[in-house]
């Protein structure tokens, strides 16, 4: 790696800049977490590696942009766009799962993999037909275009809110999974689906529900990311890699693992760009490699032998 330049050193010695990057890291991490949590949930329950998750994220961002544009940026239009993105992706996921994926559970993993990859291509092309290849910008929502004064530094309000939303999603998912009967059923489905069905549970219906919720999270994450990024074709490719890195770091199917993994990726990306510009993505892989050498099943993962 290249040596750290003197200019970088002085930037890192600046507390305001450090604070700013620190907050940016959390904000980015939380945005990625919302999306990766959906991927992780689907992987844990359905045992399907859903490549289309990134495409769902992209469509979520487009739906948000369309809603805001259609309503001429009226107050509340952004949040309506966020809700619309979650709902649209939930419906899309329902149709895909019930219509197609549903019939592939008994098949080998490769078939399922190829299927979700086909969805990536189809959704990508449909998105180009609907939204073209232009780049769109979604403005910060009303009342959140300013900054919050921390006394020693200012930080923009929207990414700050994003941090909070990430925590709310994490705690909300944890509460549902651990404190409700449906959550218990979802956890049981990750452990032994055959036994669960022998106890009278319609497991295919549980699968549909989980696929819909997980995909809605991708849509939600895409809409929430829209003001931070350029909404354009190809945005699905980066995010799916990031999500996989997060899920692998955290341990397959682990909620808090994904949470920590997403934070770690946020920090590595934000500080990596400053310290080793051009090496950003490499650093993400180095992070993954390092953690896997230390814990081969990820931060919160259990080995196959341990879990049986």
């Amino acid at each position: 790696m290249p040596p750290i330049e003197g200019k970088t050193m002085s930037m890192l010695a600046n507390p305001t800049f450090l604070f700013y990057q620190f907050m940016n890291s959390i904000s980015l991490g939380m945005n990625i977490f919302i999306i990766a949590a959906g991927l992780s949930l689907i992987l844990g329950v359905l045992r399907v590696i859903n490549f289309a998750h990134g495409a769902f994220f992209m469509v979520g961002a487009y739906v948000c942009w369309s809603t805001v544009t259609y309503l001429d940026g009226a107050t509340g239009s952004f949040w309506l766009g966020v809700a619309a993105a979650a709902v649209v992706l939930g419906v899309v996921a329902f149709v895909i799962e019930r219509g197609l994926l549903h019939y592939l559970y008994g098949r080998e993993h490769l078939t399922q993999l190829l299927f979700t990859f086909a969805i990536v291509l189809v959704v990508g092309d449909l998105a180009k037909m609907i939204w073209g290849t232009d780049q769109y910008n979604v403005p910060y929502p009303h009342g959140l275009s300013g900054a919050v004064n921390f006394g020693f530094a200012l930080y923009p309000a929207y990414p700050l809110l994003l941090c909070a939303i990430g925590v709310v999603v994490a705690v909300g998912m944890w509460l549902v999974l651990s404190k409700t009967r449906w959550g218990r059923i979802i956890r049981a489905a990750t452990q032994d689906r055959e036994m669960l069905s022998a106890l009278g549970m319609n497991v295919p219906l549980v699968y549909t529900g989980v696929f819909v919720i997980g995909s809605a999270l991708a849509g939600l994450g895409g809409a929430l990311a829209a003001p931070r990024v350029a909404v354009s074709p190809g945005m699905d490719a980066t995010i799916i890699i990031e999500c996989f890195i997060v899920v692998i770091i955290g341990g397959l199917g682990s909620l808090w693992g994904s949470f920590l993994g997403a934070l770690a990726l946020g920090f590595v990306t934000m500080f990596g760009t400053v310290i080793f510009p051009d090496w950003e993505l490499v650093l993400a892989y180095v992070l993954m490699l390092g953690i896997l050498l230390w814990r081969p099943w990820g931060l919160f993962g259990v080995s196959e032998e341990e879990s049986h």
Binding site: A188, Q191, D192, M195, S197, A198, L199, M201
Partner: peptide
């Protein structure tokens, strides 16, 4: 009939390998 349907009709299954959900 699907397995879950049979169970709902009132047949309970206690498998020989017990199949407790270990994480619950």
């Amino acid at each position: 009939l699907p397995v879950y349907h049979v169970a709902k009709l009132g047949i309970g299954y206690v498998p020989e390998d017990r199949r407790i959900f270990p994480e619950l």
